[in-house]
Design a protein around this nucleic acid. Sequence first.
RNA 1: GGCCUCAUAGUAUAAUGGUUAGUACAACGGGUUUUCAUCCCGUCAAUGUGGGUUCAAUUCCCGCUGAGGUCACCA
Length: 479
Amino acid sequence: MNVVTRFAPSPTGYIHIGNVRSAIYPYLVAKQANGKMILRIEDTDRGRYVDGATELIEDTLRWLGLDWDEGPIVGGPHAPYFQSERKEIYHEYARKLIAAGRAYADPTPPEAIDEYRKECNEKKLPFLYRNFRPEKTPEWTPGIPLRFKAEPKEYHWHDEVMGDMHAGPEVQDDIILIKKDGFPTYNFAHIVDDAEMGVTHVMRGVEYLSSTPNYLELYEALGLEVPKLISLPHILAPGGNKKLGKRDGAKSATEYRDDGVLPEAMLNYLACLGWNDGTEQEIYTKDELIQRFSVDRIQNSGARYDEVKLLWLNGQWIRRIFNEQGADGLLMRAEDFWPESAKGSTVEYRRQVLSIIYDRLKTLSDLRTMTDYFFRDPTIDLDMLVHNKFLKKLSESEIESLLKLTIARLTNLKDWDEDSLQVALNDLLTETGKKPAELFSLIRISISFTAFSPALNLTMSVIGREPILARLNAVARAI
RNA sequence: GGCCUCAUAGUAUAAUGGUUAGUACAACGGGUUUUCAUCCCGUCAAUGUGGGUUCAAUUCCCGCUGAGGUCACCA
């Protein structure tokens, strides 16, 4: 079979991470089978349309490396890929249904429908419009919504994730096919498009499970083959049990990108949220995911979104890229994440800084807060020195003399490299009789004024003799 | 309210009739004779509940409870 999947978002704003997975899975399924993934923009709700949203969606997919085989930009044999430009196609299908007596123009004003609905709600009955079907229906002309004429019966179908399903006639209704503005509803448009575009696997959130019988009847009425139906369980918000949404502060994928999350980590995390291959592997490359993914191992209950685990995974990926592609490989990714003070520094210097700090990064943007002192002298903060847990037992005069001794020994140091520095530091330890935690904390804070830093000898080696001595002198004077 | 779905540690999950119920994140403790982190080791921690079926149920069936979805001229 020629597998064709699709990702069909609505351009109503950014796509938050809860939705991104609906793009990942179709991509994996398509690539695994050497098939195609289509990107289709479902922009039939003009009221909710947000300018620029399509570009945001495209950006997100490109960032994650989820390239689509047909769709906006790349085009394809089934263009256009914007539903707003396919009106005629839907109308054609609509006319077929009218001709077959399976659709009718509904002149009932919305207020009347609201009344019916209210009535049902009050009686605690499910609202089925077909019970209120108008007796006389006009010819279908623009400005009148078109409804499907349901012929309810029992349906059995198979959902690749949820298993064998069935539903009685009580759930089928006269759904709206074409709205009064002439645009189709999702319910109608997606069926027409999927058929026109040859989609073989429909992957979407479980919220569509309840409407599936209606879709099945539509397929039948249109004489279309039903694609494989795959319901994806929701990604749940960290706090509650509800589907993760923008109201829960769900960030967009691009926000994570801007915060220094690697696309590899995002893809890895999201793909494995609600899916596993049965092994104990945690880190997957995109190629591994393509190879190993299987729809039947998608979880059938919702999975809670856990940013902490995402960030852990991101740290893993940062290290992996460093180890596999070297400092230069990671340096390329880190370009946009250096602090302001790094402007004007050489690439070689940044490479050195990155090489000694990379294993402390959870996100690339940590560079901004963690490396400032490599690029400029830190602001002296004596409180930080005096109140440090290892230094608070030292008197100020003791601190001063320790600093002076350190300065003297370092000034005379022949070679300023990490090994010589380590020897010198160890000698200082012996000479002063201080514990490493005390002496080294003193030096570390004096040169960085941050809570932590890479190994002292490495830090000093990278920053260089002149700046280090200047900083130590400045602190000694300030005491 | 009708219909539908789901249910293993705090979280993500493994184990589809037989295991001391495994792994990862988190938490906590320790090690790597300097901080933070990496890395390594360890500790804590779970089958919602009641019935069946079976020699044996996390696993199969039913009730209950809990959670979620759906009942739009939104997708």
